[in-house]
């Protein structure tokens, strides 16, 4: 395996990890505030469709991005209303959002574009183009470091950089600011926040909306960055993989980065090596494609050591005395 191949796989890892990372951080904010969110998948899907549809119609990827975020925020609003205001079951609300997104996107896409539930392929200004970082050309001649910089670090779309910047930003917000302290507290002991005179409902809505924003970015990246347009069920379980990564990461931003890169790597390997030949036995492509999902199951089944979820997670807050 030469450097070029390795770089290509890693480059692909970064791209594939990006939507996972954004969704994982989205879930992190929501779950840290005590709102479990199984609906990451649905929000991403809604955002993917809205961004692709609007980008296709207007030709502007930025308007598409905005539409994606709005769609995802709407879904978040539903989840917030159901699970915070009406104290419903958070899992059921999340599942409902997934169904809603899965059905609505295809229905509207068919109605608007008549292409079998997909949007037209995006081109030109309808997609996020790769950004070439400064000096990428000039440095590409330098051995090892040059190609690493030019191939791996440079040449991604803006949302990839945003996703990776979100990691230190999330860490800072959660662990160095007043908002973060209160957010973490409300997921652990909402009664402590309430008696301290801070609104539990306000904090939880804020968290759910941040989750919506990040899912919106993730979905928009899928449809306008990673691929060129929306196809039905294009999230393909990424929301669930992000949830697995979140548990794997023990609800911490930096661990979330590693977890998402790991899942991204698996997907990249699966994409690149469709058939692996092991001395006579050929591992079929389906096994490789299934690998990230199998790992998800293994991780969710508890092979992660001790991961303690936020203590008040999943519980609607009811004021008592």
């Amino acid at each position: 395996m030469d450097l070029v191949t390795v770089l290509q796989v890693l480059d692909s890892t970064v791209r594939l990890a990006t939507p996972l990372l954004l969704a994982c951080l989205a879930g992190l904010f929501s779950e840290r505030s005590g709102i479990f969110d199984i609906g990451l998948e649905g929000k991403m899907l809604a955002a993917a469709f809205a961004s692709a549809a609007i980008a296709a119609v207007t030709g502007s990827v930025w308007l598409g991005l905005l539409a994606g975020i709005v769609a995802s925020l709407l879904m978040s609003g539903i989840h917030g209303l159901a699970s915070i205001t009406f104290r419903g079951n958070q899992l059921i609300s999340g599942v409902a959002i997934n169904f809603l997104a899965s059905g609505l996107t295809v229905l509207i896409a068919q109605d608007w574009f008549g292409q079998g539930g997909r949007t037209p392929s995006l081109m030109g200004g309808g997609r996020f183009e790769p950004i070439t970082l400064p000096f990428a050309e000039a440095l590409s001649g330098v051995p090892v470091l040059g190609p690493v910089y030019a191939e791996l670090i440079s040449g991604h779309s803006i949302l990839v950089y945003v996703a990776f910047l979100m990691v230190p930003l999330s860490w800072f917000v959660l662990f160095r600011t007043r908002f973060g302290l209160r957010l973490r507290a409300v997921g652990e002991a909402p009664e402590a926040v309430d008696t301290a005179g801070v609104s539990v409902i306000g904090l939880r809505y804020a968290a759910v909306m941040i989750c919506g924003l990040l899912c919106g970015l993730a979905g928009a990246y899928l449809a306008t960055g990673l691929q060129a347009g929306f196809v039905r069920e294009m999230t393909a379980g990424r929301g669930y993989i992000a949830l697995a990564a979140l548990i794997f990461a023990k609800w911490r931003p930096w661990y979330a980065l590693s977890a998402c890169l790991l899942f991204g790597l698996l997907q990249a390997v699966a994409l690149r090596y469709q058939n692996i030949d092991l001395g006579g036995i050929t591992i079929p492509v389906q096994v490789m494609d299934a690998l990230p999902y199998i790992l998800t199951v293994v991780i969710l089944a508890g092979f992660v050591g001790k991961a303690i979820p936020p203590r008040a997670g999943g519980e609607p807050y009811v004021k008592e005395r």
């Binding site: 160095r176 302290l181 507290a185 402590a192 301290a196 005179g197 203590r311």
Partner: peptide, 20 residues
């Protein structure tokens, strides 16, 4: 909050500014 420090519990809701 069980997994916060004493100090964090004391300032929760009575912080001086946006930075901790």
């Amino acid at each position: 909050v069980q997994n916060f420090t004493v100090l964090e519990n004391v300032i929760l809701g009575a912080e001086d500014g946006p930075m901790l």
